[in-house]
Each structure stands twice: as C-alpha cells, then as structure tokens.
C-alpha cells in the first residue's frame, strides 16, 4: 500500500519543530508501524536527509520505549496496543497519517519523536519500591499472599512505564502510572510497612517533576496499552487520604 505520513521534525530540545510530509510507497500491510518508519528512514538516508529519530527497543510491547502519537492518539488507533505492535493492515491505501511525539511539560522533546521521560524514574525513586536489601529475605513461603491479591497486584504491575497516559491527559498528569505502582505494592503484604510514606512521597515527586494535576478525565486509561484501569486512581486517592490523616 502507498501512504503519506506527516511527521513532527525537531532537530534539538531548543529548536522549533514542524510537521513534514513524506510519501511511503509499497509498504506491506504485514509491516509494523515502526517497520514502516524504518523503511522510510532507509530512503531518507540514501537521499541525504536526516532520518527520523524515535525510541524503540523490544518491539514486543513490553519495554515501554516506543512512544508515538498517531493521528492524535497516543500509540495509535488500536486499543491496548503499543506503537511497536501496531500493524499497517489497520490503515488503508492512500491514508495520510500524522505522527507526533508525546507532548507533556514533564516529557520535553529531545529530537523528533524522542522525549525525555526521566521524570518517571524520579517518581519511582521517591517511593516506588519495597526496601528489601539483598540477603535479608525470609523464605519465600513465609508469608502466603491470597491469590486474588497477587493477581490484582500483577495486573497493576504490568504497567510498562511508556507514558501514553501522560501524553493523552489534557493536564499532563502521571496519576495512572503512579496509581499502578501504588496498587501493585500496596496489595502485597511486603508492601505494607512503607505504604503511607510511599503514597505521600510519590505524589510529591510527581508534582516536583512538573506533571499536572488529575481531574478525572479518564483519557489515560483509554490509551493505556496495558489496560491499567482508571479505578486505580481512586485507590491511590484513598490511600493518600488515609496516609495524610495518620501523619
């Protein structure tokens, strides 16, 4: 199939950017979206142009590196699908597709479609862990965990840290990401001792990192490739209220 893509080109963090249109000819419907960009880049290089920079690594929907806003939607049109797992068969011959980077105050653009997401790591640093230095652990069976809790913790822990939730949020809020971690650790018995400080510190860190406030718009859960539900934000808020009331 033949398509056109209009891609955000920005040569550096402080330069101005613009949308540039490219023709992509004869692309297989079985190619992934990133493979389509690969093919385009090969042509750009041979024509002496600068190829499009974009983040990616696993190309299996698990590392969370890929991050493109496609036709206005973070990760594109398919539900619960990362950009790398999106295939061209979901587009039509002759389509014109817009491709832009994540846009959020806390994710500044580095180049083209590559943004800086170290602000997410800062949130984890503030409390997204259980303090368990190596070698101090009791036997793994010392504390049984109800299957229901373990399964729910796992579901929350599948967040890949991609940042689509932030990119989709009109406020640029990271609440869904933070809530996923709060829920994961808060459901495990091992996570209880630090539960209160964790939620207080992580919320503080997301404010400090420049993320916006949450006004329950729900756009985040719509685009989340891992189906992290909006209800987790409610859980976070309730944890926060409890923690504050104790401190």
């Amino acid at each position: 199939m033949d398509i056109k893509v209009r891609v955000w080109r920005q040569s550096g963090p402080s330069s101005a950017g613009q949308m540039v249109t490219y023709d992509v000819k004869d692309i297989s419907p079985d190619a992934s979206f990133l493979e389509m960009i690969d093919v385009l880049n090969e042509t750009l290089i041979l024509n002496g142009d600068d190829p499009i920079a974009f983040d990616h690594d696993c190309r299996e929907g698990i590392c969370g590196a890929c991050s493109m806003v496609i036709n206005g939607v973070a990760h594109g049109p398919e539900k619960a699908t990362t950009t790398c797992q999106l295939h061209m068969r979901h587009f039509k011959d002759g389509d014109v597709i817009d491709v832009e980077p994540w846009r959020a105050a806390a994710f500044p653009v580095i180049k083209d479609l590559v943004v800086d997401r170290t602000s997410f790591d800062k949130i984890i640093q503030a409390g997204g862990y259980i303090s368990a230095p190596t070698g101090t652990a009791p036997d793994a069976h010392a504390t049984p965990v109800p299957k229901k809790d373990a399964d729910a913790a796992f579901e929350a822990a599948t967040c890949i840290g991609c940042g689509a939730c932030v990119a989709a949020c009109p406020n640029g809020s990271s609440m869904l990401f933070t809530a996923a971690k709060i829920t994961h650790l808060g459901l495990m018995p091992q996570g209880q001792p630090e539960r209160d400080t964790r939620v207080i510190d992580m919320l503080q860190a997301q404010d400090d990192a420049g993320f916006g406030g949450c006004t329950n718009m729900g756009e985040c859960a719509e685009v989340c490739p891992k189906g992290i539900p909006l209800s987790l934000i409610g859980r976070l808020n309730s944890d926060y209220r409890k923690a504050i009331s104790k401190h």
Binding site: Y129, I130, A132, T134, G135, T136, A137, P138, D139, A140, T143, P144, V145, P146, K147, A150, D151, A153, F154, A157, H184, L185, L187, M188, Q190, G191
Partner: peptide, 14 residues
C-alpha cells in the same frame, strides 16, 4: 526467589 518475593514481585500463586 526469596529475594524477589521480599521486593514484592507478584509471582503466580495458588
């Protein structure tokens, strides 16, 4: 396994 469980790794359970 002990170490990972202590860190809160949500392994499959019965």
């Amino acid at each position: 396994i002990d170490q990972c469980v202590a860190q809160g790794v949500p392994f499959a359970r019965e």
